[in-house]
Lab assay of single mutants.
Amino acid sequence: TYYTVKSGDTANKIAAQYGVSVANLRSWNGISGDLIFVGQKLIVKKG
């Protein structure tokens, strides 16, 4: 599943929404920190 980042989103918020850990969200998308951008497409695997 892909999720498009919206204004006000955070890695924590997206992870919680899908029931996954922030560490997994980072791993699936090659993100090292919490910096995400509006319009960015993230791979999300439901927990």
Results as ranks from 00 to 15, higher is better:
residue 37 F to A: 09
residue 33 G to Q: 08
residue 20 V to Q: 04
residue 33 G to A: 09
residue 19 G to N: 10
residue 27 S to M: 13
residue 14 I to S: 00
residue 38 V to L: 08
residue 22 V to T: 07
residue 34 D to A: 08
residue 39 G to T: 04
residue 35 L to I: 13
residue 46 K to L: 15
residue 9 D to Q: 01
residue 18 Y to H: 12
residue 19 G to K: 08
residue 32 S to P: 08
residue 46 K to T: 12
residue 10 T to D: 08
residue 26 R to C: 14
residue 33 G to W: 06
residue 47 G to H: 12
residue 2 Y to A: 05
residue 7 S to M: 14
residue 18 Y to N: 08
residue 21 S to F: 05
residue 17 Q to F: 13
residue 45 K to N: 12
residue 34 D to G: 08
residue 30 G to A: 11
residue 6 K to R: 10
residue 19 G to W: 05
residue 11 A to F: 15
residue 4 T to F: 10
residue 15 A to F: 03
residue 10 T to C: 06
residue 9 D to T: 01
residue 32 S to I: 15
residue 12 N to A: 15
residue 17 Q to H: 10
residue 17 Q to R: 12
residue 13 K to A: 13
residue 36 I to H: 02
residue 41 K to R: 13
residue 17 Q to A: 13
residue 34 D to N: 11
residue 31 I to Q: 04
residue 11 A to H: 07
residue 13 K to C: 08
residue 38 V to A: 09
residue 13 K to W: 12
residue 10 T to Q: 03
residue 25 L to W: 00
residue 7 S to Q: 14
residue 4 T to I: 15
residue 14 I to T: 01
residue 14 I to N: 00
residue 28 W to K: 01
residue 23 A to P: 06
residue 38 V to S: 06
residue 16 A to S: 11
residue 5 V to L: 01
residue 40 Q to N: 05
residue 43 I to V: 10
residue 27 S to P: 02
residue 1 T to Y: 13
residue 2 Y to G: 04
residue 1 T to D: 11
residue 46 K to S: 11
residue 26 R to P: 02
residue 39 G to R: 02
residue 21 S to M: 05
residue 10 T to V: 04
residue 26 R to Y: 15
residue 6 K to A: 08
residue 39 G to N: 06
residue 44 V to P: 00
residue 20 V to S: 03
residue 25 L to S: 00
residue 21 S to P: 07
residue 7 S to H: 14
residue 35 L to W: 09
residue 19 G to V: 04
residue 9 D to C: 04
residue 2 Y to M: 09
residue 23 A to D: 14
residue 5 V to F: 03
residue 4 T to E: 09
residue 23 A to K: 09
residue 38 V to P: 11
residue 30 G to L: 08
residue 30 G to K: 11
residue 31 I to F: 14
residue 29 N to T: 02
residue 39 G to P: 00
residue 47 G to L: 13
residue 3 Y to Q: 02
residue 18 Y to S: 05
residue 38 V to M: 07
residue 43 I to M: 10
residue 16 A to I: 11
residue 10 T to W: 03
residue 33 G to I: 10
residue 30 G to N: 15
residue 34 D to Q: 07
residue 35 L to Y: 13
residue 30 G to S: 11
residue 15 A to M: 03
residue 35 L to S: 13
residue 12 N to D: 15
residue 8 G to H: 06
residue 15 A to C: 08
residue 42 L to F: 02
residue 30 G to M: 09
residue 7 S to A: 14
residue 39 G to K: 02
residue 30 G to Q: 11
residue 32 S to N: 12
residue 31 I to K: 03
residue 14 I to L: 05
residue 27 S to R: 12
residue 19 G to Q: 09
residue 29 N to L: 05
residue 46 K to Q: 14
residue 14 I to E: 00
residue 44 V to A: 02
residue 21 S to Q: 06
